[in-house]
Design a protein around this nucleic acid. Sequence first.
DNA 1: CATTCACTGGGCAAGCTGTACAGCGAATCA
DNA 2: TGATTCGCTGTACAGCTTGCCCAGTGAATG
Lengths: 155, 155
Amino acid sequence: MAIDHLDGRLLQLLAEEPRIGVLEASRRLGVARGTAQARLDRLQSNGVIRGFGPDVDPAALGYPVTAFATLEIKQGQGADVRAHLASVPEVLELHTTTGHGDMLCRLVARSNADLQRVIDRVVGFDGIMRASTAIVMENPVPLRIIPLVTQAAGD
Amino acid sequence: MAIDHLDGRLLQLLAEEPRIGVLEASRRLGVARGTAQARLDRLQSNGVIRGFGPDVDPAALGYPVTAFATLEIKQGQGADVRAHLASVPEVLELHTTTGHGDMLCRLVARSNADLQRVIDRVVGFDGIMRASTAIVMENPVPLRIIPLVTQAAGD
DNA sequence: CATTCACTGGGCAAGCTGTACAGCGAATCA
DNA sequence: TGATTCGCTGTACAGCTTGCCCAGTGAATG
């Protein structure tokens, strides 16, 4: 569960240069290949590493607009709303939260005009009472994990 | 920039089973290896695929609590606030947005109690006027891209 | 008709992966 | 103290993949 310094450096290496294999990683870390392999296997079976899926950029796919929508849901309609949102490709992520809204979702769209279409589709569903949307202008800190890994590794 | 059906299927394959290589992918797609390789290269130089970094689960690292914080910033303090937030490992993501708040950030913490520490650290900075936090309870739709890829590929 | 482009199918050397094994030092425990 | 367990090292091997190259084909372009 907890990771040590070597795990941290391994993750960092893989994050920076995903193309390197276990052998190259072991060389850079100054450990035997078997060790690097064992650590990597452990991280994966621990669930620390979920996978190595391709990191796809929605903007490059033609969806340069990102927005976050806070949704207010009718009591007891949660499951239906979740299923509805899951069926919309432009909904990249959905969370249920405490606080003012009940759900928070990340949307993408082809343009600001297209965002209107997406929002209409998202909120055009019976269980959703209100939605408030915040359009993303800049992304000063893109989704990252390495600083946290470094901290967890006890640096 | 736009991707076709073959690109879509390739991305889908890589997302489902990242461990398979180009050769195996080409076999499953029923195309020559060179083709799969060329498509993959193109997707990467296009920026559609940003990389293949390990997908690390913060929960498995000991940070099971996720929250979103909406921040209100003093005029003209944006740059300082961004730098401040970037320096906090528990800040996984930061966006500047339109709407009620000025910024939206994703936080993780070791526990609800620990979240208080993180929030204090995040908002304990001069340029930040107000923060409102929503704790994530459930994540019905984890960050995903494949449905969008499928749509972009023209299915 | 000539050209360009993407794809095919093949081949090669180099390198990596998966797996196995014996040896070693540190920590644990009776 | 002595035995055991555990993780790491160094090594080895077969099998496979990668990166690269080439010639040929079919479709689209000009």
